[in-house]
Amino acid sequence: MTSVNRTRSVIPGFGLTMGLSLFYLGLIFVIPVAGLLIYTATMGWPAFWAAISHPQVMASYKLSFTASLIGASVNLVFGGLVAWVLVRYRFPGKRLIDALVDLPFALPTAVAGISLVTLYASTGWVGQYLTLFGVKVAYTQLGVVVALTYIGLPFVVRTVQPVLEDLEAELEEASASLGASRFTTVRRVILPALLPAALTGFALAFARALGEYGSVVFISGNLPYRTEITPLLIVGKIEQFDYHGAAAIGTVMLVAAFLVLLLINGLQWWAAKRR
């Protein structure tokens, strides 16, 4: 009797759902990634190294990772702020703004890129005023950051929002009644609760930005060594039928993104444990 209870879970269907999950992950995710790795493995170490370490490629890594990091950081701060405002305050048009936050997900990235460059080009609505202050956005590295910030906006908002909603206001009141200042309450009570979710949002925004292509190519100017992002270089290789070169750089991006996500997951685990 007890042995039956031990092997049988109260919730049915574990075997079935597990099997389906593995099948699904295999089909959608593992096979394409394995294909990339296997294909890269056929090219041999010297060719691989030459493809991934060329100065032009190195310059693109630098830009892609830095710009993605800046974009995700900006979103961490301002996305957190947006989530806070959406959860804690009532104001007219709140639902509309709530819905608008998801727009960068839905809008085709090419449309986003063209809109951004129309705004920020030196003849654009925003760009013409920025030019007066000597700030150039379109066709510079700053333009890349702007595009990557735009497409990463929803992630932090959407991960932080539900946690904030669950965070009871009583907790803050208790903190205040125990004599904590407003700043201490934010620092010791609210932020630690939000940190794991915020980090998840940050990681998602960062990963998304690393792979982004469609919106960036319109605003970056695509100058090798200066404003060329790694995904564009990969497309360039494919256009020349250099599938091996493209796969090699793709593999580097994959491994790098994986390491960064692993690191952030570790941080998250550490933050959750510390609470």
Binding site: A121, S122, Y139, V217, F218, G221, L223, P224, L232
Partner: peptide
């Protein structure tokens, strides 16, 4: 002397015609 290196011919035409660059 090329300030914007578009990935395709249509993009370059847009840069010149629409953006005025």
């Amino acid at each position: 002397n090329v300030p914007v290196l578009d990935s395709g011919a249509r993009g370059a035409t847009n840069t010149f015609v629409q953006r005025g660059i």
